[in-house]
């Protein structure tokens, strides 16, 4: 994926670039605001990581320009401004997420991943199954008023199972769907994720049933 990073602090920029490149993304790094805005005029990226305090043009201005041209490129804003209103402002201006400096670089990486996935994924972000509502945007599953945060693979697992309720998925099939073929993962991982997911959807009418020797099945109590 191509990621455009606008960050004037050398150490920070370097660290972000390094981390993202390590997981296989291409990172274009720009330190000057005006220059960054110019680049964004004619180049499309999968994700823009934008610092607010910039020489030349500040991050908000760049964001405004971007959004004024109806670009839907996801934007993650990095802010060092003391007032959290900046964050609100950032969201209002169309930022998809923000991080306040100093931040945890793992968190940055995680959020980046979420934003990139959202871009790729299904445009319908709500999936219903029984009394469960899976909200991919907020990465949560809702039962009534209660919403429980889910991890990326938990969401994927639930998506897979919920796409065909009642159908039995074998462990290997689920392993493929969760991790792809290239990743070398222990098949026990499926049990781990199923266990976590069960815990997180506890109290709902939807259950994940283990069928010994065959695999897993999503069952809604009403349907049964």
């Amino acid at each position: 994926m191509r990621i455009f990073l606008v960050e004037d602090t050398r150490d920070v920029g370097e660290a972000i670039s390094r981390r993202l490149e390590k997981v296989g993304h291409t990172v274009d790094w720009q330190t000057d605001g005006q220059a960054a805005a110019d680049i964004l005029e004619f180049t499309d990226y999968d994700l823009v990581i934008l610092d607010v305090m910039l020489p030349g043009l500040d991050g908000f201005e760049i964001l405004r320009h971007l959004r004024s041209r109806r670009k839907t490129t996801p934007v993650l804003v990095l802010t060092a401004r003391s007032e959290i209103e900046d964050r609100v402002g950032a969201l209002d201006l169309g930022a998809d997420d923000y991080l306040v400096k100093p931040f945890d670089f793992r968190e940055l990486e995680a959020r980046t991943r979420v934003l990139l996935r959202r871009r790729q994924g299904d445009p319908t972000n709500l999936i219903e199954c029984g009394d469960l509502v899976l909200d991919r945007n907020s990465r949560s599953v809702r039962v009534g008023n209660r919403e429980v945060q889910l991890k990326r693979r938990e969401i994927t697992l639930l998506e897979v199972l919920a796409a065909r309720p009642g159908r039995v998925f074998s462990k290997d099939e689920l392993l493929d769907r969760l991790f792809g073929f290239d990743e070398n993962v222990n098949s026990n991982a499926v049990e781990l994720y199923v266990g976590r997911l069960r815990k997180k959807i506890e109290g709902s009418s939807v259950r994940i049933v283990t069928i010994r020797g065959l695999g897993y099945q999503l069952v809604t109590d009403e349907a049964a």
Binding site: T9, D11, V12
Partner: peptide, 9 residues
């Protein structure tokens, strides 16, 4: 903040 971010970087 800034140096701290840099440090953490």
């Amino acid at each position: 903040r800034t140096p701290l971010t840099a440090l953490s970087a």
